[in-house]
């Protein structure tokens, strides 16, 4: 099978993405895990661009790699957590069970995907697919109620986060 340039670009994003995701799990210090996660989010944004999801790729970097990760780093530094080396030494049976269950579930999922969706063709899409204009039109017509509910959710989350994290109101 001949490899196209798009497939090469996909692999150039997908391989570092999986490596960074594994780095999140195996990192001993939460700070290293957070840095791996930032790398994973950037690679994922590249994959989104390949899927012609320009707005979502932009939001991925803005919201995930920007806001959410700053929040994570802020909490890690606030709690000044060390590594968990002593806990990795006593990898208990339950953790092995988790590893086996998670890995087994992953294998089942992979087998199902490769069997079910083999040979599915990508639809031809117009030039404005995934742009701010097209997604914004969908958000403000078909998905107007969920969109407004999202703003309510974010307000509740902000108030709730302050109430829970603050020592004395």
């Amino acid at each position: 099978m001949n490899v196209t340039a798009e497939q090469v670009i996909f692999l150039a994003f997908a391989v570092p993405l999986v490596a960074a995701a594994i780095g999140v799990v195996v990192a001993r210090s939460p700070m290293y895990a957070a840095m791996s996660l930032v790398g994973a989010f950037f690679c994922l944004a590249g994959v989104y661009v390949l899927l012609t999801a320009h707005l979502i790729a932009f939001l991925q970097i803005l919201v995930y790699a920007g806001a959410v990760m700053v929040l994570f780093l802020f909490v890690i530094m606030l709690l000044s957590l060390g590594g968990e080396g002593q806990q990795l030494d006593r990898l208990k049976q339950l953790q092995w069970l988790g590893f086996v269950l998670g890995g087994g579930g992953l294998m089942a999922l992979l087998a199902w995907i490769s069997r079910e969706v083999a040979g599915a063709e990508m639809a031809a899409v117009g030039p404005d697919f995934g742009t701010i204009k097209a997604v914004g039109r969908a958000l403000f017509t078909t998905y107007l109620l969920p969109f407004e509910a999202t703003s309510l959710l974010l307000t509740v989350a902000i108030v709730g986060a302050v109430v829970v994290a603050k020592e004395k109101i």
């Binding site: 995701a21 594994i22 988790g98 990508m122």
Partner: peptide, 25 residues
């Protein structure tokens, strides 16, 4: 053109890695 199952496999791997992390960390 990248076939759709490549993306789905990548998502499955990502989900599995996250699941293992939730279960063992």
């Amino acid at each position: 053109m990248v076939p759709v199952q490549w993306y789905l496999l990548l998502a499955a791997v990502l989900f599995g890695v996250g699941l293992v992390g939730v279960l063992i960390k």
